[in-house]
Design a protein around this nucleic acid. Structure first.
Lengths: 375, 375
DNA sequence: CAATTCTCCCAAAACGTTTGCGAGAAACAA
DNA sequence: TTGTTTCTCGCAAACGTTTTGGGAGAATTG
C-alpha cells in the first residue's frame, strides 16, 4: 500500500526506440515487436497479425515474406499487449500453504501439469497460512490479471473465502476445503477415506484405537476423522476422545504427538490412525525410540500414500489419495470455468483407496501379550 | 508453432464496454480501470495515476476523493498495461525438473520466498527433463515477458543453454549446473561436500567404499563424486570403479541400485556414499530387505539433508546442503541482475556441512564379523 | 465498357497505464 | 493593476497488440 518501488534509475539500456534492423546483432537485441516485423516484411501490422494468427486469408507470397521476417527477428507476440485487448492472460494463480510438503507438492505438480497442457501458466505462491501474505499475494495476482485462482489452504479461514467471494469475475477452485457456495471444491472423499481406515482396523480386531488428528480447523483431516468415527459407531464402537492427539500434519509434530501419546497412555492403544503419512512416519520414529516394534506392539495406518510410504520401515499401510489427480482435476475445472463453461460447477470428490503394507498387524498384539486377550 | 488455440467462441460475457457505475453490483462487476476511478472521483486519469503512485503532488482534498473512489471500486492497476509502457513485468520464470523431489521442492520454495519478498511473482514450470517441454515453456514465458529466468535442471544439456544464451536481454541464473559463461550459477560447493563424506568415512576406517552415483550427465552429482574421489586419492586410497552404481537420484532407483550392488558384491562394501538422501533411503530399504542391518553390516552416508533424513530408520548421516539458501540466493542474484546491477556476476558456491546421525558405524564391521578383520 | 464481386491489404481505434508538456488559478511581489 | 511564482491538474502521446471498416486494384460478369 505504501510507496512502491519506482524505477528511478531506469537502469540498463532497456528498450531503445524500437530497434531498427534488429537482424544485425549490434548492441542489445530488443525483443522485436509486430511493427518491426511489419517493417521488415514491408507490410502493415494488420497483415502480420493475420498471418501470425491465421485470422484472415493472406496471399501466399505475402505470407511467406512475413513468416520469414518473423523467424529472422525471432518475434513472438507480447501476451501483455494481447491481454490488454480483453483477451485472457493465460495465467492462473495458485495459493498453497507450502510447496515442500510432499502431498502438496504432488497436487501442485498436477495443477501445473494440466495448466501447461492447456496452454496456461501457473503463478505459485506459498502462503504459510499467513493471512497477511495471502492478501499480498492475492493482490499481486490480481494486478497481474490472472484468469483464475486455485486455493489450497490447510486451515479453513472463512473470512478469507468471504473476501474471495467478493471478487466477482475471478474464477476460483478450492482444494480440500469445506464445502463453499460459489466456489468449486475438489477433494478426495475424505469421509470415505476415514471409513476405509476404520473398517480395516475393526476387521482385524483392533478396538482400542488412537488418532493423530490434524489441526482443529483443518477441514480435510476433520472429515477423515468424522468418517472414521462414523464407521466405528456403526460397528458399535466408540471413538475414545482421550486417545485423539492433535498434530499440524508435519513429520515433527507426528513424532512429538506420538511421544505424548505413549507417555500418557499405558498400555498404549493397539492401533493409531494418522491423518497423513508424514505424521505416521514421525510417529513410527517416536514409537521406535520408545522401544516399540511396529506392527508387533502397535499398528499404524496413514493417509495420502506419498512415495516415502513405500520406503519407511516398516512400509506404511495407508489410504491413498489420488493426489496428482486432485491437482489435475482442480486445474481442469478452473480452466473450464475460465473458458466460459457455466454448467457443471459441482464439487468433485475423488475416491481414496486402501493400500495394504506392513504397518498394521494381523490383530491386537495377542501373541506377544496373551494376557490382554481376555480383556 | 502450429495453429494456436483461438478463442473462437469468445464464450461468456467477458468484458462489457467498460462498465459504467461499477459501484452498483448489478450484473457482473468488471475489474475497474483507472478511468472508472477518474470518473467516480471527477478527475482525470492523470491525477488518479499520480495519487496512486505518489509521483506528483496532488491537493489534499482531491487526493481524498480519489482514494475514496479507489477503495470504493476496489481498483488495482493492471500490471499488464503498466508493463506495456516498458517497465518490468515483475514476474520471473523458473524451469525445474520436478517440484515433487524434496530437494527441488525446497530450492523452489527458497526462490519463491525471495521473489515474494522483493515483490516479484514466480511462474513455475516442471520440465521433466523433456527438451520439447522446456522449449514450449520457455516460449510461453517469453511471451509473458518475464524479467528473468531461473533454471534448475538435473541433466546438463549444453545445447539448451546455448539456445538460452542467444536470448540476450533475458537475465538468467542457473542452479546446480556446470560453470557457464554468461550465466550466473548458484551451487553448493559439491566438491567440498564429496570430500566431507570421504574424509568422514576414511577417518572411521572404512576402506572398501561403494558409491550410488547420479546420472552420467548430472553436474552436481559428478562434482560430488569428484571431490569424493580426490579426497580418497589424497588419503592414498583408490576409488574402486566397479563399486560405482548409477541412479537417477530417486527413491526407487536407490533401492534397485542397492539391490544390484548387493547381488554383485559379496561381501558387500563396508560403506556406501549416496549422491542424495532419497537414494540413500531407497538403499536402506534394499539393504533391510536383504537382511542387512545398518550401520552394523553396512554404513550409509547421504547428501542433501532433507527433512526425512532425520526420521528414517536409522537416522541418516548426510551432507547438508543449504537448500533453501541456494534458492534464495539464486533469486536474489537474478533480481539484482534484472534491476540493472551489472557487476558481481560471479558464481556462488555455498558451503555444505556434515550432519552426523546413525547410519554410519564406528568402523568397518569388525565386531560382528571379526573374520574380516584380517583381510 | 460498365457494373459487380473478389482479393489483398491498410488505417485507425481500442485496451489501461504512465508521463512530458502546458494551462489555469491562486498567491505573492511590485 | 500587472508581472511572477507556485500549486494544481488535464491533454494527449506512447506502449504492442487485435480487430473493424473500408479501399484500391484485379478479376469476373453483364
Amino acid at each position: 500500500m505504501g510507496s512502491r518501488p519506482r524505477s528511478e534509475a531506469s537502469g540498463g539500456v532497456r528498450r531503445g526506440p524500437s530497434a531498427r534492423f534488429a537482424k544485425g546483432m549490434e548492441g542489445r537485441a530488443q525483443t522485436p515487436t509486430i511493427k518491426d516485423v511489419a517493417r521488415a516484411a514491408g507490410v502493415s501490422v494488420t497483415t502480420v497479425s493475420h498471418v501470425f494468427n491465421g485470422t484472415r486469408p493472406v496471399a501466399q507470397e505475402t505470407q511467406a515474406r512475413v513468416r520469414e521476417a518473423i523467424d529472422d527477428l525471432g518475434y513472438s507476440p507480447s501476451i501483455l499487449a494481447r491481454a490488454l485487448k480483453g483477451e485472457r492472460t493465460g495465467t492462473i494463480g495458485m495459493l498453497a500453504t507450502s510447496s515442500t510438503n510432499p502431498f502438496f507438492a504432488e497436487v501442485i505438480s498436477g495443477v501445473e501439469e494440466r495448466c501447461f497442457e492447456q496452454g496456461y501458466s501457473l503463478i505459485l505462491s506459498n502462503t504459510r497460512e499467513d493471512r497477511e501474505r495471502m492478501n499480498a499475494q492475492l493482490a499481486t495476482m490480481l494486478q497481474k490479471r490472472i484468469d483464475g485462482l486455485v486455493v489450497m489452504t490447510t486451515n479453513y479461514d472463512p473470512s478469507f473465502f468471504q473476501d474471495l467471494r467478493k471478487l466477482r469475475g475471478l474464477h476460483i477452485v478450492a482444494i480440500d476445503t469445506d464445502d463453499l457456495d460459489q466456489v468449486v471444491v475438489v477433494n478426495d472423499d475424505s469421509e470415505m477415506g476415514g471409513r476405509l481406515a476404520a473398517n480395516y482396523l475393526i476387521e482385524r480386531g483392533f478396538r482400542r484405537i488412537g488418532v493423530l488428528a490434524g489441526p482443529h480447523q483443518h477441514p480435510r483431516a476433520n472429515r477423515r476423522l468424522k468418517g472414521f468415527a462414523n464407521a466405528l459407531a456403526e460397528a458399535g464402537l466408540a471413538l475414545d476422545e482421550s486417545l485423539i492427539y492433535r498434530t499440524d500434519l508435519t513429520l515433527g509434530s507426528g513424532d512429538t504427538a506420538m511421544q505424548r501419546l505413549l507417555a500418557q497412555q499405558r498400555p498404549p492403544p493397539d492401533a493409531v490412525f494418522c491423518m497423513n503419512d508424514l505424521t505416521a512416519i514421525g510417529a513410527m520414529h517416536a514409537a521406535r525410540q520408545a522401544g516399540l516394534a511396529i506392527p508387533r506392539d502397535l499398528s499404524l495406518i496413514g493417509y495420502d500414500d506419498i512415495e516415502m510410504a513405500s520406503y519407511s520401515e516398516p512400509q506404511l499401510t495407508t489410504i491413498r489419495q489420488p493426489t496428482l489427480e486432485i491437482g489435475r482435476t482442480a486445474a481442469q475445472r478452473l480452466i473450464a470455468l475460465v473458458e466460459g463453461e457455466e454448467a457443471n460447477s459441482e464439487d468433485v470428490a475423488l475416491p481414496p483407496r486402501l493400500i495394504e503394507r506392513q504397518s498394521v498387524g494381523l490383530g491386537p498384539a495377542r501373541v506377544d501379550t496373551p494376557e490382554r486377550e481376555k480383556a
